[in-house]
Amino acid sequence: MAQSKLSADRRGWPFYALGAVFVAYVVFLYGPMVCIYLLSFQGPQGGLSFPMRGVSLHWFDQLIEQGDTGDLMGALSRSIPLALIVMALTVLISLAGGLAFRSRFPGSGTLFYLVIASLVAPGYVLSIGIGLMFQMFGFETNWYTSALGAQLSWTLPFGLLIMFAIFGRFSRSYEEASRDLGANQLQTMWLVVVPILLPGMIAVALFGFTLSYDEFARTLQTTGSTNTVPIEIWSMTQNVTSPSIYALGTLTTGLSFVVIGVSLGAIALIQRRRLGSVAGQE
C-alpha cells in the first residue's frame, strides 16, 4: 500500500472523526450479537444476563434434546428447503426481470413502482392479505404455497435491485459478439450472460436464501399450522425465559454465517480468477 503511505501525512481530523464513528458503529452492530453467543454457552445455573456461571453446552442440550421449543427440527426441515426454493426462484426471476428492464417496455414504469411497493409495504399487512386471500379462495395456507409467495414478495425486490446494479455495468456488446459468432439466444444466455453475471447471481442467491431463512413478518400469517425457524424464535421470545433462546440464536446465526461465508468466498474466488493480474501468471 504505497499509495496510503505517500499521502499519509494529509489525513485530517475528518478521517479520525468519521473513523471513530465507523468503529463505534461496528462495535454497536456486533457487540450485542457477540454477547448472546457468549451467553448461549452459559453454565446450567446461569441466567439471561452476565455474569457467566461456568461454560457449558447445557442450553443447546435443553434446546435440542429437551424440546424447549415446540419443534425446532421440524421448523428447520421446513425453513431450509423453503429458503432453497426461494433462493432458486429469486435468482431466476430477478435475472429474467433484470434482462427485461434493460429496455423500456409498456408498463415497465408501473411494474417498477410495484416492485418498490412490494419492498416497502409493511410485511405484516401483506401477510394478513395473503392469509385472507387464501381463506377466501378456499386454499389452506402452507409454507410451500402462501409462505413461499409471501417471501418472494420480499426477496424479489432485493434481487431485482441488485440485478439492476449488475446490468448497469454489463455491456451489451458481449451478447452482440456472441450473436456475431453464431450463437443462438439460448447459447448466448448459457455460455456468455450467465457465466459473466455469475458473481452477481451468487449475491442475489445469498439475499434470497438469508432473507427467506430469516423472514418473519410476512411469514407469520401465511405459514399455516406449521412453523418456520423465525416463528419458533418469536414464540420463544414470548414464553421462554432461559438461555435456550440464546442457544437457538447462536445456532441459527451460525447457519447464516456458513451461507454468507460460502457465498462471499465463491464470489471472491471467481473475481480473483477473472481479474487475476498479469504478474500472477508470469
Binding site: S171, S173, E176, S178, V192, P195, I196, L198, R274
Partner: peptide
C-alpha cells in the same frame, strides 16, 4: 467490437 467484447470468463 470497439472494446473487443472478449468474454471475460473464457
Amino acid at each position: 467490437f470497439q472494446s473487443y467484447a472478449l468474454f471475460p470468463h473464457l
